[in-house]
């Protein structure tokens, strides 16, 4: 198995970052494999890590009393899951479930936050990337809010 630092270096989320900076994260990171149907985390739990998805698909679910579990987004290989680790109260808002077999690098949130505090260059580089992910998800969410395929729009 490849060392975890190498997996981070090759991941699109970290593209453009100095390898040296990425290596700083190595001590916070570990390789995880999650079987189909198992959870990476569940709603309400402490957001103590974030996941760099290498293989497979992760579904973000929310349970609705009248509709059961609804998938509100999926995250693919090459992307990352979760930013609750970064914003107080550091708690997950959704369930994250492996749709098939998932390989990811789990990065410990406390360790990561400490490193960001200690090294603003690392912190800034990471924030840029997290902000990018947040921005894309927000845009996608806004578009879906408009329900463009709804009955008022023949298409």
């Amino acid at each position: 198995m490849r060392p975890v630092g190498e997996l981070l270096v090759g991941h699109p989320f970290f593209a453009g970052l100095d390898e040296e900076i990425i290596r700083e994260l190595e001590g916070c990171a570990r390789n995880v494999h999650v079987h189909a149907g198992e959870h990476l985390f569940r709603e309400g739990e402490d957001a103590d890590s974030f996941f760099v998805v290498r293989k497979g698909r992760v579904a973000l679910d929310v349970h609705m009393p009248d509709r059961g579990h609804m998938v509100i987004a999926t995250v693919e290989a090459g992307d990352v899951v979760g930013w609750s680790w970064f914003v107080p109260p550091y708690r997950w808002f959704f369930d994250a479930r492996a749709v098939g077999e998932v390989s990811a690098v789990s990065v410990d949130a406390t360790c990561l936050r400490d490193k960001c505090e200690a090294d603003p260059a690392l912190g800034y580089a990471l924030m840029q990337r997290v902000a990018q992910v947040m921005y894309q998800r927000l845009q996608a969410t806004r578009v879906r809010l408009l329900d463009v395929y709804g009955a008022d729009h023949a298409g």
């Binding site: 509709r67 059961g68 579990h69 609804m70 998938v71 987004a73 098939g100 578009v143 329900d147 395929y149």
Partner: peptide, 13 residues
């Protein structure tokens, strides 16, 4: 845009 858990494909735009 949205699916229940039986859907194994992608959800998003």
């Amino acid at each position: 845009d949205v699916a229940d858990r039986s859907w194994t494909g992608r959800v998003g735009v």
